[in-house]
Design a binder for these strands. Structure first.
Lengths: 208, 208
DNA sequence: ACATGTGAACTGCTTCACAGCG
DNA sequence: CGCTGTGAAGCAGTTCACATGT
């Protein structure tokens, strides 16, 4: 398959959320222009994004909300449940562990890990925080698809090594550190400092 | 000033974090190639990014770590303290409120707001959670530069209206909702669903 | 000799505009 | 006729390559 731009994938994800919203509202048909307005883009962009994957609309009519949503779920790989573990049982990690949005979207948080004896064994939801040392064995029993890293910056690389060493192939990294991982491992960074500094820059330079 | 790409700003932010790290380690001089390797980019990219703002290096030598860091802080607008409020005293909001990385980078969280009577008045750090209804008055007394939204998706637009109505000019939005705001207001979205779905897509399509 | 700074070439994402089809 | 799907054009961001300064 042709390489798809990350920006395209992000927009598909956005379109899907709008479609789900519209479906809830009972809307059955939607045009590329409607989707574009919701997502702050253009109808040509919407059609181009979809065109990489096939043709989903009816000319003169638009798209079936339900059908397009189903197609996008398929494209984004959301038809299966993804098994997610969270590494780092700090405030952010535990907040994420209980975040309902995960499960709704098919991401099922099945374990939380930490290295601190203070935290290991403590309860979260209906389970207990597990020892980081068990990750490799646990993953061999029932593999995780995605590891979410919510550890301090100085521990991030070491934890990432354990994660990739266990065979996990995707990381969502909340630690403010640039991870070095094998080629086949996919990493997405969520870097708060970067977002805030982007706002800082924009505010500083907005009064021209 | 010429318009600067968001990707450039994100990289500047990244370079700054590397420079701070290197400075800690006592490194005094660094080449564009060194910075590129740390950030997973190319030396030409680093030099081009910097070139938008001036010329900071010495030919044949490289950049002074301290001087370049100072320049980047200046460029990114990090020489002043930014006043930040957090809106939504749920798990994520409170986790962010106590996140040390904020203050280290010059972002000072000075208030947390909520609408729920259960939460208003409860302590966080050395302060109390304030009533959302007080935001406008509080902001008139001592303006916030940035509002961080950690509210449920269905409340996000309404809250954003209150925020922009109070005169706040920048929003970091953690709610999975596309905000509509006046032109002069700057919004950055941190959308977990999008990040996870990006990983899902990549995992689904990685085995070619 | 070495690494910066930068115009020029290139790559790839976005926008345009229209043919095609319901 | 309306809206999709798509080649072609346009534009923005990245990479190249070299002249320039130390």
């Amino acid at each position: 398959m042709k390489r798809i731009a990350e920006s395209t994938v992000r927009r598909l994800s956005l379109y899907l959320s709008f479609l789900e919203e519209k479906d809830q509202e009972g809307v059955t048909t939607i045009s590329s222009d409607d989707l574009a307005k919701l997502g702050g883009t253009t109808s040509a962009q919407v059609r181009k994004d979809l065109s990489f994957f096939g043709s989903f609309g009816k000319r003169g009519l638009g798209y079936s909300v339900k059908e397009l949503a189903a197609s996008l779920r398929q494209i984004l790989g959301l038809s299966k449940e993804w098994r997610v573990c969270i590494i780092g049982a700090g405030k952010v990690g535990l907040a994420l562990a209980q975040y309902k949005g995960f499960r709704e979207r098919g991401f099922s948080v099945t374990a939380v890990y930490d290295t601190s004896p203070d935290k290991i064994g403590k309860p979260w939801d209906s389970q207990k925080i597990r020892d980081m040392a068990d990750l490799k064995r646990d993953n061999a029993d029932a593999p995780f698809d995605i590891a979410v890293l919510t550890v301090p910056a100085d521990a991030a690389q070491q934890v990432a090594d354990l994660v990739t060493g266990s065979g996990i192939k995707a990381i969502l990294n909340f630690a403010p550190a640039q991870l070095i991982v094998p080629n086949e491992v996919i990493v997405r960074e969520v870097n708060m400092a970067m977002e805030l500094e982007g706002l800082s820059f924009a505010l500083t330079n907005s009064q021209e």
